[in-house]
């Protein structure tokens, strides 16, 4: 029973973070038609920035805010410098086919991931360092029993909930949000309505960058920080996004929690080493049973 509760709690807290990662992927996929494999590389980089600030005596919160802002900035810079020139490229012989046009941004994002990881290695040394949590990571004590739920878990879930509420309000209530949804759904009609689609694309990169930076900040206290620490989060986030539906933000959140639970239960009831295989199994199952995801729209091939 204790194991079960622990698994549930840890699954919720982890799932919330994976939901954030998946949401970041979905935002860029909807907004720009690209699965950004560099996303957690960006998050790793901004977490290092926060870590450096905190190590130099600044408060956690300054690091926190700077990480989010630099995450947004990094996302937009990458879009403007790399992805926008790619999408505006004229059709050459190589780019004549849809499949290659879809592959090129993926390759570019892998290149970005490589650059960010190498840069982080050069700047911040290869040795692992820890990252502080703003709240205690020991379980609450209720009637003398230590519960498998920590103050940090509360912090994580609050952060994620606030992010989800804010993004959904932004998309539902603001003009910019409407412009972004329109661009994601039908670029041509959006352009004809006077929406500057280049800008909305960049904005989706920025929001996604900030969201994944937050995910990075929340993930690293439980592991160490190194150039590769967040790779696994990308795999899990991708799987979560596919499970929920790559073009559905709500689906992404749902997928994040599903993955959080799966991983948590595998860790508690089996061994942590099987987590990778479990992720693969979930991904393949989901692709066989529901290729467009739980809440995704049917057109899987949207590019």
């Amino acid at each position: 029973m204790d194991t079960f509760l622990s698994a549930i709690f840890s699954g919720t807290s982890r799932g919330a973070i994976f939901a954030l990662v998946a949401l970041g992927l979905v935002l860029v996929w909807r907004g720009a038609g690209i699965v950004n494999f560099a996303q957690m590389g960006q998050a790793m980089f901004t977490t290092y920035i926060a870590s450096t600030l905190i190590a130099n005596g600044n408060s956690y919160w300054i690091g926190f805010v700077v990480a989010l802002v630099s995450g947004a900035a990094l996302g937009s810079i990458l879009d403007v410098l790399v992805m926008r020139p790619l999408s505006n490229k004229k059709k050459t012989e190589l780019l004549s086919s849809d499949s290659m046009r879809a592959a090129i941004p993926v390759i570019a994002s892998l290149g970005i991931l490589g650059v960010l990881q190498a840069l982080a290695g050069i700047i911040w040394a290869a040795e692992e360092r820890g990252f502080p949590a703003p709240a205690k990571q020991e379980g609450f004590t209720v009637a003398g029993n230590v519960m498998p739920f920590t103050a940090f878990d509360v912090f994580v879930i609050t952060c994620v909930a606030i992010t989800l509420i804010l993004t959904s309000l932004f998309f539902k209530r603001t003009g910019m949000g409407l412009a972004m949804r329109a661009t994601a759904l039908n670029q041509e009609v959006a352009k004809l309505s006077g929406i500057r689609t280049n800008r909305t694309r960049t904005l989706s990169w920025a929001i996604s960058g900030a969201a994944s930076s937050l995910a990075g900040l929340l993930l690293t206290p439980s592991s160490n920080l190194s150039p590769n620490t967040l790779d696994l989060a990308l795999f899990i986030g991708f799987t979560a996004a596919v499970v929920g539906g790559l073009d559905s933000p709500v689906g992404a959140v749902l997928g994040g929690f599903i993955l959080g639970m799966v991983i948590s239960f595998v860790t508690f009831y089996d061994t942590p080493e099987d987590v990778f295989l479990a992720i693969l199994a979930v991904l393949l199952l989901s692709l066989i049973i529901r290729p467009h995801g739980i809440l995704g729209s049917k057109d899987v091939r949207r590019v």
């Binding site: 003009g175 329109a182 759904l185 041509e188 009609v189 004809l192």
Partner: peptide, 24 residues
């Protein structure tokens, strides 16, 4: 454009508002 170019996933209100976003 041809073929009743509206965005089906958005509401009527949102579809119309879309055209005026840049004038806000």
């Amino acid at each position: 454009p041809e073929g009743h170019a509206v965005i089906s996933e958005l509401s009527v209100e949102e579809n119309i508002a879309m055209g005026s976003l840049f004038r806000r």
